Amino acid sequence: MRRIDVVTTDDAPACPRCGGEGLLWARVPHSWENAAGERVDGLSGVVLCPGCDARTPHAAALITWFHVNGRTDDEDAEFVRLLVEWATSVFVPELDEQALEEEVERWRRDSR
């Protein structure tokens, strides 16, 4: 079973997909195999975004909870249930090595 850490803070995180204000974020474990065939483990931040995630089943209910109730309340059993459902459904997409190489090449060109 993987451990997902939900990060609580008064500052809403920005969504890395659209730049809009997120509702909360979590650290999600993931892994991949490097060129040497070795497993590499890591953590990535995943933001719950009311715009980008509105059509995602487990996220939609939690987003609705935020719209109705406002701030988080870890004493609210319904919030905790929705949070657990969302957290167990989030994932980090596989690394797109070609897109990464293209981004690195753009960075190299622009930094000259």
Rank of each mutant, 00 (worst) to 15 (best):
P93Q: 06
D110S: 07
T72H: 01
C18M: 05
E94G: 15
R71L: 12
E75P: 09
Q98P: 05
D96Y: 09
N34K: 10
S31L: 00
A99N: 07
W25G: 07
L43R: 10
A14R: 09
G45Y: 03
T56M: 15
R3D: 00
D73E: 05
M1R: 10
I4A: 09
E97L: 13
G42R: 08
V90D: 00
C15R: 02
V6M: 05
D96G: 13
D41K: 10
P29F: 08
A77K: 06
V68M: 05
V28A: 12
A14F: 03
R106W: 04
C15Q: 01
V40R: 10
V47M: 00
C18G: 13
H67I: 01
W25Q: 06
E97V: 15
V40K: 13
N69A: 10
W86C: 07
G51I: 01
L62H: 06
D74K: 13
L62E: 03
A61W: 01
G51R: 08
D11I: 12
P57V: 09
L82G: 03
R2Y: 01
G20S: 02
E94M: 15
S31M: 03
L100S: 12
A12C: 04
A35E: 13
L48W: 00
G45Q: 06
V7P: 01
L48E: 00
G19V: 11
I63T: 02
C49R: 13
R27L: 04
D11L: 14
T9K: 05
D11G: 11
T9G: 08
W86M: 12
A35C: 04
R109N: 05
